[in-house]
């Protein structure tokens, strides 16, 4: 893995559930709370609908980090979608370990719709963490291939 480069701008994909996480992100924006533009939000109906394949494909296409964000425990609009998300995140973390992509690049975040500041803080933190980890070996390999072709 390359040494962390100060100019690295990591790409972080955040799958946010429509009811809580996405609303929290929206609120953060409305309240003009700053969080890094590295975090690319994908709105999903429920965190439980984020399949292992979605998380894996994000890494495969070059994401350096992935965040799955759902409602607080007990608050899922589909009752237990967020709990299933937790299990799926753990499953994909094990798979990332097997592939050799640090499982710490994948995180679960549970927030309520009103927690704009929590969302902003989590977005800042994961960006910081990924920046410290450096680019994912996959995004590096993709970049190296593009260079070779050019």
């Amino acid at each position: 893995m390359a040494a962390p480069t100060p100019e690295l701008e990591p790409v972080i994909v955040a799958f946010c559930c429509h009811y809580c996480a996405y609303t929290a992100a929206d609120q953060a924006g409305a309240q003009r709370l700053e969080y890094p533009s590295n975090v690319k939000i994908v709105r999903v109906p429920c965190s439980g609908k984020v399949d292992a394949l979605h998380m894996l494909r994000a890494f495969e296409r070059g994401a350096d980090g992935v965040l799955v964000a759902g409602c607080l425990e007990g608050d899922c609009h589909f009752s237990t979608g967020n709990l299933r998300a937790r299990k799926k995140v753990a499953q994909v973390q094990r798979l990332l370990e097997e592939i050799g992509v640090g499982p710490e690049r994948l995180e679960l975040l549970l927030v309520s719709a009103g927690m704009g500041s929590n969302f902003a803080r989590a977005a800042r933190e994961i960006t910081q963490k990924i920046r410290a980890l450096g680019p994912s070996p996959i995004s590096e390999a993709i970049a190296a291939r593009a260079m070779n072709r050019a």
Binding site: A52, L53, L56, L95, E98
Partner: peptide, 21 residues
């Protein structure tokens, strides 16, 4: 079908990482 996708993705990443796509 889903597991085929997961394995393809995992293999693809592993091969990319190894520099042998």
């Amino acid at each position: 079908r889903k597991e085929v996708g997961l394995l393809a993705s995992a293999l693809n990443m592993s091969m990319l990482k190894a520099g042998r796509p």
